[in-house]
């Protein structure tokens, strides 16, 4: 039983490590499906992390913490939307600037909170189901945000491929001219998608500062925003593959820790690079099919839209 317990512990930790990526990547997926490329995930995550942490410290309520993180992420993405959609600034440059801005802003705001300990988000074991051996601890014994992330995955999948609103979103990302000619408000739809992306990035940040390592540290996202961005592309814009990539990243992170704990003499720096390298590598290998990419990639991605065109 001891081995099974270890494996279950590793898998549970894997899900925890993958959850922030799942949140951020699902938001970016929606944003990109609407034809907007937001490279500022890292910045939005950091601002979300610090906002959630401060709100938690001040109110003691995890719910308010998460809501504050969402609001902060949306504010950041709203700024991005204003610059790129309304003022038609270059999306790549604006996204990069948003990340740099987010790194600086979060460090500045969070200065007084470094090392401040908080009570992390409590677990939420689902009664009865949580008591099932192995499966129970694997699936029904997590913190609330893990459940939320899985519900969100299902919701995003359903929204994109089953709902009319999702169809419109994909149409806007496919050809904004055609969508405009039919009479849809391209800007409104893109704003909503960008704001959704900001909200989930905020939650992803809050997951790090409230659940994963319940504290605030400068630059604590450590490049996860970039990995989330890569996940979306390598997952060829399909939600299920985003989940696979996110948990793969989480799994290798956790494996690395266990390998070190087992006393293997590997440089910790090398181990720390593994999840990034392996995730990208695996996803590149499984998504080499050019046809699939063309069919799933939003054709208008990153192209500015002007209605008088």
């Amino acid at each position: 039983m001891a081995e099974i317990d270890t494996i279950v512990a590793i898998l549970v930790a894997t899900m925890r490590a993958g959850t922030p990526l799942l949140f951020a990547a699902l938001g970016e997926l929606i944003t990109e499906k609407a034809g907007v490329l937001n490279l500022g995930i890292e910045g939005m995550m950091l601002v979300g992390a610090v906002a959630g942490f401060i709100a938690m410290v001040l109110t003691g309520s995890p719910l308010i913490g998460v809501l504050a993180a969402m609001a902060a992420g949306m504010a950041m993405s709203g700024l991005f939307g204003f610059l790129t959609l309304t003022l038609m600034a270059n999306q790549v440059a604006t996204g990069l600037a948003l990340t740099i801005f987010g790194v600086g802003l979060s460090a500045f705001v969070g200065l007084g909170y470094i090392g401040n300990p908080i009570q992390g988000l409590p677990g939420l074991a689902i009664p009865v189901l949580g008591d099932i051996p192995v499966l129970g601890s694997l699936l029904f014994n997590h913190d609330p945000l893990v459940y939320v992330s899985l519900v969100l995955l299902a919701a995003v999948t359903w929204f994109l491929y089953r709902s009319r609103a999702g169809l419109i979103l994909r149409a806007v990302g496919e050809s904004h001219e055609a969508a405009h000619a039919i009479g849809y408000s391209v800007l409104k739809i893109r704003y909503l998608a960008v704001l959704f992306g900001g909200a989930t990035s905020g939650i992803a940040g809050a997951y790090l500062s409230l659940v994963y390592t319940p504290q605030w540290a400068e630059n604590m996202t450590a490049g996860r925003g970039w990995i989330a961005l890569a996940l979306v592309v390598f997952a060829t814009w399909r939600p299920a593959r985003v989940l696979l990539g996110a948990y793969l990243f989480g799994g290798i992170t956790i494996m690395g820790l266990h390998v070190q704990a087992a006393g293997f003499a590997i440089s910790s720096h090398l181990v720390a690079t593994l999840p990034y390298l392996a995730t990208v590598l695996v996803l590149v290998l499984i998504s080499r099919d050019a046809t699939r990419i063309k069919l799933n990639a939003p054709a208008a991605l990153g192209k500015p839209f002007h209605s008088s065109g």
């Binding site: 169809l167 994909r170 149409a171 496919e174 050809s175 001219e177 055609a178 000619a181 039919i182 069919l295 799933n296 054709a299």
Partner: peptide, 11 residues
Amino acid sequence: VFQHFNLFDTL
């Protein structure tokens, strides 16, 4: 019916 169709290729 436009000369340049307003259709979405991947749908």
